[in-house]
């Protein structure tokens, strides 16, 4: 119990600290790296809560895909962060107010849950039962392809439509762009790829065939 508590405080402290560094870091690449650190520690918190599947998904999806994508964007786009920060003080009041409202709501909600556990009338809120004696990865695995196969395949179809849509709306075959065509490369023979040109020694007279080739290029 104490060990779990110790890990909880460790993960929680690092999460909060790295989340703070995400917004305060001067270098945007550092900010993304701190974001990844925050994700890892949040995953640790999930493990402590017994939600190991969620923890793994957080690492795989958020760290593996989303954060890396962020990193690409930050590195490839030339974002002028000094210019972005210039308007910071102008909007600080508004941002501070919104943040305070959210904080007050969270405090209010958590406080009512702690001080009066039965504040919400019984029967108003119903929760789905939590299965006992089974890890949640196994629980998901049991129902994903059986009970929820319809939803799972439906989600797959949505992704297929998204893919077709992206290709239809953006792919353009430009005729004047050189592409690598491997079968064409492999089909080249000596006779199609090579011209032997006799250049007379000592003179600058390029033969007609070679001159035409130079002109074409």
């Amino acid at each position: 119990m104490t060990l779990a508590a110790a890990f909880f405080y460790l993960f929680a402290a690092i999460t909060v600290a790295s989340a703070f560094k995400v917004i305060s870091a001067k270098n945007p690449v550092h900010a993304v790296l701190y974001l990844i650190l925050a994700f890892f520690n949040a995953a640790g918190l999930f493990v402590l809560l017994g939600a190991e599947f969620l923890a793994m998904i957080l690492v795989v999806v958020y760290v593996g895909a989303v954060a890396v994508l962020f990193l690409f964007v930050v590195m490839m786009l030339d974002v002028d962060f000094a210019q972005l920060r210039a308007g910071f003080m102008k909007n600080a009041t508004l941002g501070f107010t919104v943040g305070m409202i959210v904080l007050a709501e969270i405090v209010f909600f958590v406080a009512t849950q702690f001080l009066k556990p039965g504040a919400l009338p019984a029967g108003l809120v119903r929760a789905a039962p939590i299965p006992q004696g089974i890890t949640n990865t196994e629980a998901l695995g049991r129902v994903l392809y059986t009970k929820y196969v319809y939803f799972f395949q439906g989600a797959g179809l949505i992704l297929l439509v998204a893919m077709i849509g992206a290709i239809v709306l953006t792919l353009r075959h430009k005729p004047n762009v050189r592409r690598q065509n491997i079968s064409e490369q492999n089909a080249r023979t000596k006779s199609t790829a090579m011209d032997v040109i006799k250049v007379p020694s000592g003179g600058y007279n390029i033969p007609d065939k070679a001159a035409a080739k130079v002109a074409a290029e």
């Binding site: 929820y148 319809y150 939803f151 439906g154 989600a155 179809l157 949505i158 439509v161 998204a162 077709i164 849509g165 239809v168 709306l169």
Partner: peptide, 19 residues
Amino acid sequence: ISLYLSLELQSLALYVLAA
């Protein structure tokens, strides 16, 4: 769940068709 998934399936295809 099937309400949302089916609605998204048709909507997403229609967004593409509109463009």
